[in-house]
Deep mutational scan, measured.
Amino acid sequence: TSEDEWQCTECKKFNSPSKRYCFRCWALRKD
């Protein structure tokens, strides 16, 4: 669900929880 998505701190895109990197800008997920 969208509620589980995380928001990239670099480009603000919301990504799948299973992705460690942002799909748009490839920044590593910040915990």
Results as ranks from 00 to 15, higher is better:
Ala27Leu: 03
Thr9Ser: 04
Cys25Phe: 00
Cys22Gln: 01
Glu10Cys: 09
Lys13Phe: 04
Cys11Ala: 02
Ala27Lys: 08
Glu10Met: 14
Lys12Met: 07
Leu28Arg: 05
Thr9Leu: 04
Lys19Ser: 13
Lys30Asn: 09
Pro17Ser: 09
Glu3Cys: 06
Trp26Val: 11
Ser18Ala: 14
Phe23Cys: 12
Cys8Asp: 01
Cys11Ile: 00
Lys30Pro: 14
Arg24Gln: 11
Phe23Pro: 06
Glu5Pro: 07
Ser16His: 13
Pro17His: 11
Thr9Val: 07
Arg20Asn: 15
Gln7Cys: 02
Cys22Ser: 00
Thr9Arg: 04
Glu3Met: 05
Arg29Thr: 09
Lys13Ser: 12
Asp4Cys: 02
Tyr21Ala: 14
Cys8Lys: 01
Trp26Asn: 15
Thr9Gly: 05
Asp4Trp: 02
Glu5Ile: 08
Asp4Tyr: 04
Lys30Ala: 14
Lys12Arg: 08
Arg29Tyr: 07
Phe23Met: 02
Lys30Val: 12
Asp4His: 04
Phe14Met: 09
Cys22Lys: 00
Phe23Asn: 05
Cys25Leu: 00
Ala27Phe: 02
Ser16Pro: 11
Asp31Asn: 06
Arg29Asn: 12
Asn15Lys: 06
Thr9Met: 09
Asn15Trp: 07
Tyr21Asn: 15
Lys30Leu: 06
Lys12Glu: 15
Lys30Tyr: 08
Pro17Trp: 00
Asp31Gln: 12
Glu3Pro: 08
Ser2Thr: 13
Ser2Glu: 08
Lys13Met: 11
Thr1Met: 09
Asp31Gly: 06
Phe14Pro: 09
Asp31Tyr: 02
Glu10His: 13
Arg29Gly: 15
Lys19Thr: 14
Phe23Leu: 10
Pro17Met: 09
Cys25Pro: 01
Tyr21Leu: 10
Glu5Ser: 07
Trp26Pro: 12
Ala27Asn: 13
Leu28Cys: 11
Cys25Met: 00
Gln7Phe: 10
Leu28Asp: 13
Phe23Thr: 10
Lys19Pro: 09
Lys13Trp: 06
Trp6Gln: 14
Cys8Glu: 02
Cys11Gln: 01
Arg29Glu: 09
Lys30Gly: 14
Trp6Thr: 09
